[in-house]
């Protein structure tokens, strides 16, 4: 046993007695929010060692897992990579389906909101083989009631008209084609003029006199004069206006995304249609005689 020098005995005794009393104090004292002081001290004294032990254990565990226990990592990585690729593909497919569902929902809504207009949905299955004409091919044809010169639209606006109909397919000339055209008018001023394609993304509105006021951004809608499309279907918006001789040169941006068509609606009638339109502008002028033909019984 270690002998304590006699002159230090009292000091040791003092230390022991003080510690004893401090501990006694700690047992008695209870701080309002933290509990008994002895608990605080004990936790304070022990927790650093616990923390150090936990850190050390965590370090060794991580070191073992990250540097030594890697026997199957390559195989697992390969498997995960394959799964990741498959999941990416699946996500892409699901995103495509979701987008398709959105488009079909829009078509359905459009059909339901224009229930008096006979129409059928068709899927775009191809485009024109050459560059001479801007055309798309649909997966529905004569057997579905599609005939030549029927109008083709989307909920966004006019697409074009059917130029050929086969038993199970049909061809549609897009509005942007040079040979294409639609009876149209400016939505606000109700000035009527046909709109046709030029083989470019933008359409041209012909025969608007220089005296008539046309503003950029003004909506262009169908007039119904061509007896293919019902009135007030969106054709596009005025993108550019230049004075010409004798008419203005007005370029119109198509309302429908003609470069990215996947589903369309074919208007199943060759007779003039009147489409119910709840958003007619307040300053709308009366249509030209003959433009507002009364709706006729439509064939479904």
């Amino acid at each position: 046993m270690v002998a304590i020098p006699s002159r230090h005995k009292s000091l040791v005794l003092l230390t022991g007695v003080i510690i004893l009393q401090v501990l006694m104090l700690a047992v008695q004292i209870k701080r309002e929010s933290e509990g008994r002081l002895i608990r605080i001290w004990t936790v304070g004294a022990v927790s650093p060692f616990e923390r150090a032990g936990s850190s050390s254990f965590g370090w060794f565990r991580d070191a073992w897992r990250k540097y030594f226990a890697l026997q199957n990592t390559t195989k697992v990585n390969e498997q995960i990579r394959r799964e990741n690729d498959a999941l990416k593909l699946q996500i892409s497919q699901l995103q495509g389906k979701a987008a398709e569902a959105d488009r079909l929902a829009a078509l359905l809504n459009f059909r339901q909101s224009h229930a008096n207009v006979p129409m059928i949905g068709a899927r775009v299955i191809g485009t024109g083989a050459g560059t001479a004409s801007l055309m798309i091919q649909l997966d529905r044809g004569e057997r579905d009631g599609i005939r030549k010169n029927m109008g083709v639209i989307t909920p966004d606006g006019v697409v074009g008209k059917v130029v050929e109909s086969y038993p199970n397919a049909s061809q549609v000339l897009l509005l942007t084609d040079k040979e294409s055209g639609v009876g149209a008018m400016l939505a606000d001023s109700r000035i009527q003029s046909p709109v046709g394609g030029q083989g470019e993304p933008l359409l041209v509105m012909k025969y608007v006199p220089n005296d008539d006021e046309v503003n950029p951004g003004e909506r262009v809608v169908t007039s119904g004069m061509d007896r293919i499309f019902p009135r007030d279907l969106p054709v596009g918006t005025v993108a550019e206006i230049k004075p010409g001789n004798p008419f203005k040169q007005i370029r119109v941006k198509p309302a429908a995304s003609l470069e990215r068509l996947e589903e369309v609606l074919v208007l199943l009638t060759l007779h003039p249609l009147e489409m119910k339109n709840e958003e007619r502008p307040a300053n709308a002028q009366p249509s030209a005689p003959g433009a507002a033909s009364p709706p006729r019984a439509a064939r479904r």
């Binding site: 003092l14 007695v17 003080i18 009393q21 401090v22 006694m24 104090l25 008695q28 004292i29």
Partner: peptide, 11 residues
Amino acid sequence: PLGLYGIAKTI
């Protein structure tokens, strides 16, 4: 608490 004066008077 027991120890307050105890510690002081011990020292």
